[in-house]
Amino acid sequence: MTAFIRPSLILRMDLDERLFNDECVSDIKRSYSYVSPSFVQAHKPVDGQRPENVMRFMIKLHRAYWDKSDEAAQQLWEGVMPKWLHNMFSKVSNTITAANNVRAENGEPAFPYHWLELEFDDNALIAVKTGSDSSFPADGVDMVERVRDLMNDGALGQDVTCVRIPSRASYEAQLAAAEQAQAEAAASAEQGETAGQQGAQAIDVAAAEGEAVVVADRVADAAEGERADVADRIADAAEPAEAAAVNAAEPTFAMPELPAFNVDYGTWGIEYADGTVREFDAAAGAFS
């Protein structure tokens, strides 16, 4: 019987409003039309935060499936959900890759999704951090199974509004460490390049200094009218450059490039209806 049952899926993309425009919405709907119906909305950035694009799976299965104590619900889950989730994760990950390949061919930057949210009707909301290429974790289905087990056992408490994997605090700490490592690597590379350049620069110092003396003598000997003419020509040349600088300074939003690193999913953030968040050690199966 379960072989003929399939959940329905709607994709909701929630984008930073600085990245939201009609062309972007059309591209997204066109890219994911073969996967499921989709719609796109925008949210305001909070306190100048980095852009955060979220893809939500709105999963509907019009019969009970979450309660493990219900034998029929448990059979339905085991017979349908793990395989369906695996297929959907794979299909959507492939679609993200294909869409970004097209963008690359058109000289455009990749469009990232930073979190995947899984909405299981009114039963649970799970938010999982995607990889640096917006891919879903290979063990994403296992994470969902674990959350379901823990919630059914009451191990996460009452009034849970979201299980975030990893917690925001954990992810921000990991990102900060990756950014620091990236900065240190860049500084080390720059120091090596600078050291290599110093030898070549030293060879040219004497010749450059001699040429500077000659130029200074010629300027001192120049007539006052000639120097004024030179000054006028320099000012005229500077005007278009200044205009270009003003145009270049016009505000445009560019997606910042975050360092690529392997996310540690070990610490979860259990978010509750009253706004509190508790850190949960997934390996230990207990709150930190």
Results as ranks from 00 to 15, higher is better:
30 R>M: 08
30 R>L: 10
31 S>Y: 04
31 S>K: 11
32 Y>W: 15
32 Y>C: 05
32 Y>E: 00
33 S>V: 14
33 S>R: 12
34 Y>F: 13
34 Y>L: 12
34 Y>N: 09
34 Y>C: 05
35 V>T: 12
35 V>K: 00
35 V>W: 05
35 V>L: 10
35 V>S: 03
36 S>Q: 07
36 S>W: 06
37 P>T: 06
37 P>W: 03
37 P>H: 08
38 S>A: 15
38 S>E: 03
39 F>C: 07
39 F>D: 14
39 F>I: 11
40 V>A: 07
40 V>K: 04
41 Q>W: 04
41 Q>V: 14
41 Q>I: 14
42 A>M: 03
43 H>G: 04
44 K>W: 04
45 P>Q: 06
45 P>H: 06
45 P>V: 09
45 P>R: 09
45 P>E: 09
46 V>M: 10
46 V>Y: 13
46 V>N: 10
47 D>L: 13
47 D>F: 12
47 D>Y: 11
49 Q>A: 15
49 Q>E: 15
49 Q>V: 09
50 R>I: 08
50 R>Y: 12
51 P>G: 08
51 P>W: 02
51 P>Y: 03
52 E>W: 05
53 N>R: 01
54 V>A: 05
55 M>Q: 06
56 R>I: 11
56 R>E: 14
56 R>Q: 13
56 R>Y: 12
56 R>T: 15
57 F>T: 04
57 F>E: 04
57 F>N: 01
57 F>P: 01
58 M>P: 00
58 M>H: 10
58 M>F: 08
58 M>I: 13
58 M>L: 14
58 M>N: 12
59 I>T: 06
60 K>V: 11
60 K>N: 13
60 K>D: 15
61 L>I: 09
61 L>P: 00
61 L>E: 02
61 L>R: 00
62 H>R: 09
62 H>Y: 07
62 H>K: 13
62 H>M: 12
63 R>W: 01
63 R>Q: 15
63 R>A: 12
64 A>D: 13
64 A>V: 07
64 A>I: 00
65 Y>R: 02
65 Y>N: 01
65 Y>W: 15
66 W>P: 00
66 W>H: 05
67 D>I: 02
67 D>Y: 02
67 D>A: 05
67 D>G: 02
68 K>F: 06
68 K>P: 03
68 K>N: 10
68 K>W: 07
69 S>A: 11
69 S>H: 09
70 D>M: 04
71 E>V: 11
72 A>C: 02
72 A>I: 10
72 A>W: 03
73 A>Q: 01
73 A>R: 00
73 A>T: 03
73 A>H: 03
73 A>D: 01
74 Q>G: 01
74 Q>L: 15
74 Q>S: 12
74 Q>I: 00
75 Q>A: 15
76 L>Q: 06
76 L>M: 09
77 W>F: 13
77 W>E: 02
78 E>A: 13
78 E>P: 01
78 E>C: 08
78 E>K: 10
79 G>Q: 07
80 V>C: 08
80 V>R: 01
82 P>F: 04
82 P>L: 05
82 P>Q: 07
82 P>S: 08
84 W>N: 02
84 W>D: 06
85 L>N: 03
85 L>G: 03
85 L>A: 02
85 L>K: 00
86 H>C: 12
86 H>G: 13
86 H>K: 14
86 H>E: 15
